[in-house]
Write a protein that binds this DNA or RNA. Structure first.
Length: 825
DNA sequence: AGCACGCCGACT
DNA sequence: GTCGGCGTGCTC
């Protein structure tokens, strides 16, 4: 009897609605190379278009005897995912409603991916005449042959498509292929995914270039603006040129075509390097740290998996405990992982870890070049690196014998992926530890409400560090009422108190940091007469003003337009609303003439100066005042900073999210903790319009426990996490009515299911359809349903089934629907 | 999603 | 007659 090997394959071309293992026959010559975890190229669908696939398992029987296609190519010599990796991918699919391939994409480094190119070649020993005979009267076939012969006997599918315009080349291609005239060749080339940017440079001397565009200055103002900008800079990234001039990439291409400038790709290179570091001795722990370490290490040694919250106030030295735990894990022959919210903001952490673990550490994060990331991944996979330091996606690093995962600042939103697969690194880490009998340590000074609840109720272990390192006193915190300031005629964003404290810092030669959160940092424009606010033509948001280029911009789709001189509606004068870092900077400069004020936000950070460079200037040159957004709040310790100010503390509270309070508390606590890390006692000024708000009061007194008690009651009452999980189903599409209809249809199905619930206890709740926080992005309307219930296998199965049904329902054509579990926005 | 198949109207 | 528009159903 003939033996046939079958591969169960997960396909890249499969959408969520049709994602399942597909069976392919393994041809004799590929036997042996086709193994689980290996990627292959297979034909798929009626047109047999080539797609990448991942072998999940091998078997020798198939459920369908009839039509089974064969694997065309094996792409890898060794599996890119082990058995555990495949299991993890399947788990991610089940938990986060994505395809297996989506999961695999998140797990593997970009440098490993192939780009698949289909091209048609004239078959051996077929000459021109015979090929045109075969084309017969088909105009399409003749045009395709024209193209292929002109290109030297072979052409890419993309070119063929482009040559036929809107016409479908497939029937003609099939005709020619069936007659043996053309052959389809599929090539897979590696090396995709490197971050590149386009750089434009003047191709002519500045005067010549300018002379060429000046005559048409009136009719082609953008061309002129681009050349003028480049005359000053010589060369610049295309993205930046477009940002500053408002020109489109098409304008740049046109200029390149007329020989005025050149465009080329350049790799973006932003490696965060530890540089040369001296090897460090094991950290010496103080009494409290030692107790924490012993407790956690005992958990790590135990056979059973465990999760522990390391609840340590800012400055209590969590890092030393982490390092001791990792050393202990390595000594036991286990590997370890440390996840941080954002590596670029914590270069000092990288240095510390390099000093302790040297070559044993691999760094994985998104701003590495694809090649470097791939190299680091290979070091992990081969076992040469046993410690991984990285951001969210590093949670998938292929460490063997993983005994310890540390998730630092576990409450941070950056651990939740906003794109498919919409996973949370904490959940993935928990899963990996559970499978390996490892320990997951969640570190934080302001834990998420969910984590603290589970720690208090004994599901997680709790380990506390309550003493600040070197016994520094907490900063003095002043809460100032901005309503009061407004009433007393202070129209600026700097209260009298903050003014006084800044002045005294200037006198003493100490530095200050002022902080504006993101919402406060954007400035809008409104008409003083009719009140109109310029809105994005593609999205349902107001445009914000960017001082760097003097333009109005949309943060969702990238639309930008010149700031109009007058209101486009009524011709009235336009006013700026919102605070903005630039406005604060201006106010400070007029309050303290001659004092240098450094500003740090997305406007000031560009290719020319990274925020690291800006911060090191702040530190080295002892610039008196730094004004910035979110990015100044993180992980920065400056000896000489003794005053921090929060310009508008309540802005983060008025976001439509049940996490708004938690996030505001955490942010304010972090910011306040920035003051006085050195020998001197710090001060913090929190400016707010709602000084009596509990979140602000508790943050001011650094009283996490009271904040938690209040918030957990609220969560219980509202049935929010940790008491229920939220499943948010979002439908999006160009046609608002069909998006809404899809939601209502889903709602009806869910209502039926809920109605059959056995008891009123724990009965799921359903909210919506409601427009998403930003109801329209890039002309696509977005509506969402929220299902609040326990995250069980049954619920996930049901939702998966409904999503598949809704996405393949022809009623819902043009609408796509996806699920997000416990989203952060 | 992407492709083929099949059924209808417009035009050589 | 046939080319090409779009609705319908399937993908190992």
């Amino acid at each position: 009897m003939e033996h046939v090997s079958i591969a169960r394959v997960a396909l890249a071309a499969a959408t969520y609605a049709i994602d399942r293992p597909y069976d392919y026959q393994i041809p004799q010559e590929l036997e042996g190379r086709a193994a689980p975890g290996v990627r292959v190229i297979v034909p798929f669908g009626a047109g047999n278009r080539r797609t990448e696939g991942l072998i999940l398992a091998l078997t020798d029987e198939t459920r369908l005897e009839k039509k089974i296609k064969a694997v065309l190519t094996v792409l890898d010599d060794a599996p890119v995912l082990g058995v555990d990796g495949i299991k993890l991918a399947l788990w991610v699919r089940d938990r986060f409603f994505c395809t297996v391939y989506d999961a695999a994409r998140a797990m593997l480094p970009a440098g490993l991916w192939f780009s698949i190119q289909d091209s048609y070649r004239v078959a051996e020993s077929v000459d021109r005449e015979r090929s045109y005979d075969a084309a017969g009267r088909s105009d399409h076939a003749r045009r395709i042959l024209d193209l292929i012969w002109a290109a030297g006997g072979s052409a890419e599918l993309g070119q063929i498509r482009a040559a036929l315009g809107t016409k479908d080349p497939n029937p003609a291609l099939r005709q020619l292929t069936e007659q043996g005239i053309l052959v389809l060749e599929t090539s897979a080339s590696r090396g995709v995914g490197d971050k590149t940017e386009q750089v434009a440079a003047l191709a002519l001397p500045a005067e010549e270039a300018l002379a060429l565009v000046t005559p048409k200055r009136k009719t082609a103002p953008l061309r002129y603006a681009v050349v003028e900008l480049l005359c000053g800079l010589g060369s610049a990234a295309s993205k930046e040129i477009c940002y500053f001039t408002g020109a489109s990439p098409a304008t740049l291409r046109a200029l390149a075509k007329s020989g005025i400038l050149t465009l080329e790709k350049r790799e973006v290179f932003r490696r965060v390097s530890a540089g040369e570091v001296e090897p460090a001795a094991p950290p010496v722990l103080n009494q409290e740290q030692q107790t924490a370490f012993l407790h956690l290490d005992a958990l790590a040694r135990a056979e059973k998996p465990a999760v522990a919250l390391l609840y340590g106030v800012t400055g209590s030295g969590k890092t030393q405990v982490y390092i001791s735990l990792i050393r202990a894990a390595l000594d036991r022959g286990e590997s370890a992982m440390v996840l941080v919210p954002e590596i670029a903001l914590t270069p000092q952490l990288l240095r510390i870890f390099s000093a302790h673990f040297g070559e044993n550490i691999a760094v994985l994060h998104s701003s590495l070049r694809a090649g470097e990331r791939y190299d680091e991944w290979k070091r992990v996979r081969s076992g040469r690196a046993r410690v991984v330091l990285g951001t969210r996606s590093a949670v998938f690093a292929p460490l063997k014998d993983l005994g310890l995962i540390i998730l630092d600042e576990e409450q941070e939103a950056s651990y939740k992926s906003e794109n498919t697969p919409r996973y949370h690194a904490r959940d993935v880490a928990k899963y990996r530890c559970a499978r390996n009998g490892g320990l997951l340590v969640l570190g934080s000074a302001t834990p998420s409400i969910e984590t603290m609840y589970l720690a208090k109720s004994g599901v997680y272990h709790m380990v506390t560090l309550s003493r600040r390192y070197n016994e520094h006193a907490l900063p003095h915190v002043f809460v100032t009422d901005m309503k009061e300031a407004l009433r007393s005629g202070n129209g600026t964003s700097i209260s009298a108190r903050l003014h006084r404290e800044l002045a005294s810092n200037l006198e003493r030669g100490e530095q200050s940091i002022l902080f504006l959160n993101r919402r406060g940092a954007s400035r809008m424009v409104s008409c003083g007469e009719c009140g109109a606010v310029p809105t994005c033509p593609r999205c349902s948001v107001h445009l914000t003003y960017h001082s760097a280029n003097g333009r109005l911009m949309c943060h969702h789709c990238g639309h930008s337009e010149r700031l109009p001189d007058h209101c486009p509606e009524c011709g009235g004068a336009l006013n700026f609303i919102g605070v903005g870092t630039q406005k604060v900077q201006e106010e400070l400069e007029s309050l303290f003439p001659g004092v240098e004020v450094l500003r740090m936000d997305t406007d000031t950070i560009s290719a020319s100066q990274s925020h690291e460079a800006l911060l090191s200037r702040f530190e080295k040159e002892k610039i008196p005042i730094l004004v910035g957004t979110q990015m100044v709040a993180k992980g920065l310790d400056f000896e000489n900073v003794t005053l921090v100010g929060v310009i508008a503390a309540d802005l983060a509270l008025y976001v439509d999210s049940f996490r708004a309070a938690e996030r505001t508390f955490s942010l304010l606590t972090q910011v306040v903790g920035r003051a006085g890390r050195g020998g001197k006692t710090g001060r913090a000024v929190i400016q707010t319009y709602t000084p009596d708000n509990d979140v602000i009061r508790y943050a001011a007194s650094q009283d996490y426990d009271s904040f938690f008690e209040q918030e957990i009651d609220l969560r219980r009452l509202m049935e929010y996490p940790p008491f229920r999980d939220l499943f948010v189903l979002t439908a999006s599409g160009l046609n608002e009515a069909s998006v809404l209809r899809a939601c209502q249809q889903l709602r009806r199905s869910l209502e039926q299911w809920i109605a059959a619930w056995p008891s009123p206890e724990n009965r799921p709740r359903l909210l919506g359809p409601a427009p998403a926080a930003v109801a329209k992005v890039n002309h696509r309307y977005r509506y969402r349903l929220t299902l609040m219930c326990q995250n069980t296998k049954e619920v996930r199965g049901l939702l998966a089934q409904m999503l598949r049904a809704a996405n393949s329902d022809k009623e819902n054509r043009g609408v796509s629907i996806f699920a997000d579990v416990n989203p952060y926005d």
